[in-house]
Design a protein around this nucleic acid. Structure first.
Length: 313
RNA sequence: GACCUAGUAGCCAAGCAGUAAGGCAGCGGUCUGCAAAACCGCUAUACGCGAGUGCAAUUCUCGCCUAGGUCU
């Protein structure tokens, strides 16, 4: 009867019905859902991100102009998990943001290194080649470990530089002034090992794309355009908020700026959604612990419940 | 019926006498604080049909077919 240390994960690409399954499992196994969705954290972005179930942790925890990130997520999620367990219930993480899930289940080594906005602003003007030179100089090992695609990815390069620079500072100040190191308690991020079960929902793309397209239409029907309009009216812009980087929202920008009609927006949105699903799959495919279920199978949910039942007893 | 314009990979599209850019879509991958992000890679012998003139035609000429447009 040691369920005090269990964690259930439901993951997979978009539009596979994770939320619905999560709700059903929560009822059946006395659980509570924690969303692992990098966009559902934003208040007011409801239709486009598909907030079907509101009794969920980690939804609406930030305003759209707050730069929410993995570290924030991990902090909150850990708290939620402990809270749920302390009440003798089962925490169920449901979502498609693989990186966030990984942060919770495996942790992130460099999680203590906060973004250095000044540095980032400065580096924003650098070209790839210049970033490369900087990194190669201050942390040659890191550079050598990077693969070709990351070496051409400014975002990754900047973060690597950020981390390298932070290391330098630490070694410099740590010995004499431990308190001044980071300036923050760093939120004691540690991982107590959980007995974790991974359930993955999937579907052949052919069917998945159909589901996605239908859902897109439904969201248009549900009034996404109005939702965006009201967010814009509140002062959120394409640059200063998650609107600009969120699927289902950023596609509308040219529409609101009179560059494209609604039809074109929807078409693009569907394609983006397809690509997103693919990217999610390439991430999840690599995770070895996931138990996969094809949602097109007649009784996949029964099978899932059986699997969970055996594990959670 | 006459005239005009167009016809290039699943879609859009450049080009032009020496056998053909690019984009989209599709597919694979990277991933340790922006991750619904950012980045990398792969993919099609595709020039409507027929004849002619050229050493050589997708590119010029003629005919036909198809689409759109204009005119009586």
């Amino acid at each position: 009867m040691n369920n005090m240390n269990k964690l259930l994960i439901i993951c997979g690409p978009t539009a596979t019905g994770k939320t619905k399954l999560g709700i059903d499992l929560a009822k059946k196994f006395n659980g509570e859902i924690i969303s692992a969705d990098s966009r559902q954290v934003y208040r007011g972005m409801d239709i486009g991100t598909g907030k079907d179930d509101l009794k969920t942790w980690l939804i609406d925890v930030a305003k759209p102009d707050f730069r929410f990130n993995v570290a924030d997520y991990k902090k909150y999620a850990d708290i939620a998990i402990e809270d749920i367990l302390s009440r003798n219930k089962l925490p169920i993480i449901v979502g498609g943001t693989g990186f966030y899930i990984k942060a919770v289940t495996e942790g992130i080594e460099t999680i203590g290194v906060e973004p250095d906005w000044e540095l980032r602003a400065k580096l924003a003007n650098y070209r790839i080649n210049e970033l490369r030179i900087v990194l190669e100089k201050i942390d040659p090992k890191r550079w050598q470990k990077m693969n070709e695609s990351d070496r051409q990815n400014p975002r990754r390069l900047v973060r690597a530089i950020e981390i390298a620079q932070n290391k330098k500072q630490n070694t410099k100040y740590l010995p004499c002034s431990p308190r001044g190191v980071a300036g923050r308690p760093a939120g004691k991020i540690q991982n107590t090992k959980k007995d974790t079960l991974f359930i993955g929902l999937t579907s052949p793309y052919k069917f998945l794309y159909q589901r996605i397209d239908r859902r897109v239409e439904a969201r248009v029907e549900a009034g996404l355009e109005e939702e965006i309009r009201s967010l814009l009216k509140k002062g959120y812009t394409w640059e200063n908020s998650a609107l600009g980087t969120t699927l289902a929202y950023n596609e509308w920008r040219p529409y609101f700026e009179n560059q494209k009609n609604k039809e074109e927006v929807i078409k693009k949105w569907k394609f983006d959604e397809h690509g997103y699903a693919r990217r999610q799959m390439t991430w999840f495919r690599k995770q070895p612990k996931i138990n996969w279920f094809d949602i097109n199978k007649q009784n996949f949910q029964e099978e899932v419940e059986k699997k969970v039942g055996n594990w959670y007893s």
